[in-house]
Amino acid sequence: MENKMKASSIDLQGVSYAAAAAGGTKTLLQETDMHIPKGQWLAIVGANGSGKSTLAKLMAKLYPATTGTVVYSNQPGASYRPFVQIIFQNPDVQMMGETVYEDVRFGLDNYGFPSGEIHGLAMNALDKVGLTALADASPAVLSGGQKQLLQAAGCLAVQPEVLIFDEAASMLDPMSRQRLLQAARSLHVEGTTIVWITQLLDELEASERIVALESGAIVFDGSRETFFYPRSGEVGSACERLGFSPPYAVQLALELMKRGRRLHPLPFSIEELGKAVSAWE
């Protein structure tokens, strides 16, 4: 791939993972090679049991690879910043503080951020996810979606080089999902490497690269364009051939293209589709 020439954030070299199962072991991720360039927005998609969460935990070094190695680039900047943070699907596993504010600053204190910076970093992270007004509330009174946003705020606050969202928007209502996506976009613009893991393909609008997993193996690795739209001579897109349903905007665009309408650039959202259609006039 063209990104091979760019400096990496994470390199997976022949990585596989097997876990104990009835009668022996079960391979959850097959030998995988993956180069994730600095600052890339990588989306990982797949059905339940495809290996997405296993891959996320291997990237974060929460699981030891059965074979192969996971290599991090040298971390620039302040030594107290963690290299990678992961936002899990279940937010209850990371609740630490007695208040929302204390929960966010827990990581900042734990990693040794300068005391004079901690309050501002914590409040800025809460503002990004829309929880500033609940700073003094107990995490116990938050809704499931608010707990997910709180978990995200704690990870945003410590400014990792790589931020992994492991189906982090799955419990969120549409407005909260957009808030979380916007927070991820702002960090991406600042240079953070984003790994966004999901089953919801309408969350892939910001992705620069998509990797699809099936039975613990990579079955697609390419751009949004080549995932959602068929190349010349192909029957159906990679998305459709792999059994996924494209986002509504892409479905409409594909139907228009079948009827001979040209769309440029190729749209991935309703807003982009509207702009492409308005260009006909």
Rank of each mutant, 00 (worst) to 15 (best):
Y80A: 05
A217R: 15
I87T: 00
A122C: 07
Y17C: 12
M59W: 00
A168F: 06
V141Y: 03
I270G: 08
Q182S: 14
L150W: 00
L254N: 13
G120F: 08
H188Y: 12
G107K: 02
R177I: 08
L263D: 12
A60M: 00
A169R: 08
R209D: 03
L254V: 11
T69S: 10
S232R: 15
V141I: 10
Q13D: 11
F228Q: 03
I194V: 12
N74F: 07
S8P: 11
D221E: 02
A56G: 06
K61W: 01
I218W: 04
D202L: 09
G51V: 02
Q148N: 03
L200N: 14
I194Q: 06
T132V: 14
V93D: 14
E208P: 09
G191Q: 12
A212Y: 03
T192N: 03
S186C: 10
K6T: 10
F113L: 08
S245K: 14
A168T: 10
A157K: 08
R261K: 15
S245F: 11
L187E: 15
A168M: 09
S143P: 04
E214S: 15
L121M: 12
V129C: 02
A157W: 07
N90E: 11
F113R: 06
A183S: 15
E225D: 13
G145F: 03
P139F: 08
K6Q: 15
G51N: 06
G51P: 02
K26G: 05
S278R: 15
P139H: 13
G49Q: 03
G107V: 00
L266T: 07
Q40I: 12
Q251N: 01
T99G: 00
A183K: 14
A56M: 05
N48P: 07
T27L: 14
Q13G: 03
G39N: 09
V104A: 02
W280Y: 11
A43N: 09
E167T: 01
M34Y: 03
V189R: 12
G216H: 04
L263E: 07
S16W: 04
R179P: 05
A78E: 15
G46I: 00
D33L: 08
I270V: 14
Q85L: 02
A238T: 04
P76C: 05
E31C: 04
D136C: 07
V84W: 00
G243V: 12
L29E: 00
I36M: 00
L181Q: 15
A152K: 03
